[in-house]
Amino acid sequence: MNVKTMAQYAAEGKEPEILFWVGCAGSFDDRAQKVTRAFTEILNAAGIEFAILGNEEQCTGDPARRAGNEFLFQMTALQNIETLNMYKVQKIVTACPHCFNTLKNEYPALGGNYDLVHHTQLLQELIDDGRIKLTEGGTFKGKRITYHDSCYLGRINGVYEAPRATLESLDSQLVEMKRSKQNGLCCGAGGAQMWKEDEAGEKRINIERSEEAMATGASVIAVNCPFCLTMMSDGVKAKEKQDEVMVLDLSELVVQNLVR
């Protein structure tokens, strides 16, 4: 893929428009890698000069901090800030709402100040500005799509409309779940839950949420977060509905309808 690192830009004496913060899930998780590639394709199609940190990127520290391990959070966060400030990074886009939140809201207190944009916000911007074009009557025209608000993009950072506007530009039929926007139900992975077994209970949270999403009759569950992607996919699989219901990130929906 056509991807340059910050180090390559620096070697050429250039600065990219924006840094794409890939995140651990986006770099390593098989499923999330597809989202990363889809989003990269879109950035390239829009002709945006972007860079990644590549091997200089580290975990933002979100799961460590929320588990209570402040020491580890500070170590990884301060290292990242060193790297970002060395490259004089100003604008960052990321496809992970947890990275988004930590970079945007928590790094300033440690000396890292950046202009953050979530990939769903950038997608909407690119569509609105005509920098990418979507096919008329594309794959998702008229299809019922439900949108799952991730906690860290929605309730915690107040981004509800940009992802929905993007879905509407696909000419799909957006159906809301009973619990949405401010009242959206968590997928169950936040707060470092992704890395641990559930506490004892009656049900897994991702099953509860997947059932709610499937109850809308949608054939696509659109998500904006790699953890939600895993949790919702697992939920759909647990109900053996993976042939009828697809769980897709917004960039995967857009890339399928991209006019190239």
Binding site: M1, V22, C59, W195
Partner: peptide
Amino acid sequence: MFNAIENSGAAWSMTIDREEWT
């Protein structure tokens, strides 16, 4: 998870590098 972040800067202990997907 703590060990992975501390030792390899990633939330999972991985054998591939961060640029693999490219």
